[in-house]
Design a protein around this nucleic acid. Structure first.
Lengths: 242, 242
DNA sequence: GGCACCCAGCTGTCTATACAGCTACGGTAA
DNA sequence: TTACCGTAGCTGTATAGACAGCTGGGTGCC
């Protein structure tokens, strides 16, 4: 029997008070000194509880003013997208990449726009197929800003994935993802060795380094062999400890 | 000029030590008392820094043993999954739900297992189609633990979505998502008014309240009309305070 | 050698206190 | 009436000290 710790009791109590409607959205919650007296604990303990609730977006704190019930965003959730090599390595399998294309090319207009390039300006273009134990798992179609990653065309992507190279020369500061489902066209189907029309998961990833766009990648996975998973607490500060 | 606070200095220092390779993955970091002496601050201050770094997954802490550099997840990214009503409202469109089924039913074995129910135990089952401006956008097939949401069968889901009801009676503490791509079977196709075989995005969401499973939902979107998007910076724990 | 036990060291939590920066409010002076 | 300013109350941060639970290694006994 592990006794429930004081700061957790306070957190739960506040969450319940919000859920029950005792404190509606926007309501002013009791101050730290007040809660400290109510729960007979030190203010530091109350502070930890409230700080974590704020990080979890249950409440909003304003220095010099007070603590308020936040707009609920509870029902949103997250999915983690890992890079393909890690994904495969995590399963203890062998990763291999086949380079289908590696050249300078003029990106399609929307991609040029996403990269912040003028229409008609050249970019680096690569297409790879990533295999897990010899089975194709991802087609990676990527455009890269030349100024952000000189030497991209000289890389040996059998040794280090484009991801790894890019994260070395232009460390990732931010990433943007769009996930959609598409029916495989004949080309994708051939690369993934599936039937044309089979459902595929497509992740469009745009990465930034220091606020500058670096690359736009279209990652296509066979729906029959791949799923994106993620487990995320609403309580990022409580999720591990073991 | 706001001076940088001590715990932030420690956090940054540890992160830099990891990034520079001074402490490779798996390395044992200095203990709290050691860091406390190094930085000339109290152990509580070190503890806060380390606790937050652990929440941000830079390090892994093992009570009674020590603190270790965690596996890097730098190239991973996140996609946010919002609830359907918010999603549609955010676009300024009209949301409407059609209830296809609402009854007690015995869940399939994997679902029963996910819900922590004994095989053969009954659960509440609902199937809804969510429409955006009259166009079907999501089929929601959900099983709910009866003990966590009494009254589920009496709800009017035209007024409040199952999501909203559940978040009221069993506030969400954690969610687990798996995203995959499937070809629409004839039933799904009919509900979404698309052709059978068309690629669909499927999100399987399991929600928890206070560590207890509450519901398992299978959300199916037409690939041609829906994409999941998200933009996330690298340092989730430092994003608020304002 | 093998086993039980003890202890040093680590993280997790809590306390009582302190000071800084900020905001809102109210009183005072022009 | 208006402009100003002081103050009370709030959050944010930091400290030194304390105790608990846990783990791993070493010691000593059988």
């Amino acid at each position: 029997m592990s006794r429930e710790t004081a700061y957790r009791v306070i957190k739960r109590s506040i969450r319940e008070g919000i859920a029950s409607g005792e404190w509606p959205v926007g309501a002013l919650l009791p101050s730290e000194p007040a809660l400290s007296a109510t729960f007979r604990v030190s203010r530091m303990t109350v502070n930890r509880a409230m700080r974590e609730l704020a990080a979890e977006r249950y409440i909003r704190r304003v220095p010099g003013v007070g603590t308020f019930v936040a707009e609920p965003v509870a029902q949103s959730g997250l999915v983690e997208i890992r890079n393909i090599a890690d994904e495969i390595a995590a399963r203890g399998h062998v990763h291999r990449a086949v380079v289908l294309r590696l050249a300078e090319a003029e990106p399609p207009a929307p991609v040029a726009s996403d990269l912040g390039l003028a229409p008609g300006a050249p970019a680096y273009h690569s297409i790879l197929v990533h295999e897990e134990n010899g089975v194709p798992l991802q087609v990676e179609d990527r455009y890269v800003r030349p100024d952000q990653a000189p030497g991209y065309l000289e890389q040996d992507f059998l040794k280090a994935t484009p991801n790894e190279f890019l994260s070395r020369v232009a460390p990732l500061s931010e990433a943007e993802h769009v996930v959609s489902a598409i029916n495989a066209d004949p080309v994708i189907a051939a690369h993934l060795r599936i039937r044309a029309g089979e459902a595929c998961l497509r992740v469009t990833r745009r990465t930034f380094s220091g606020g500058q766009p670096v690359s736009v990648a279209e990652l296509t996975y066979p729906g029959s062999r791949f799923r994106l998973g993620g487990r995320f607490g609403a309580h990022p500060m409580e999720r591990d400890h073991g």
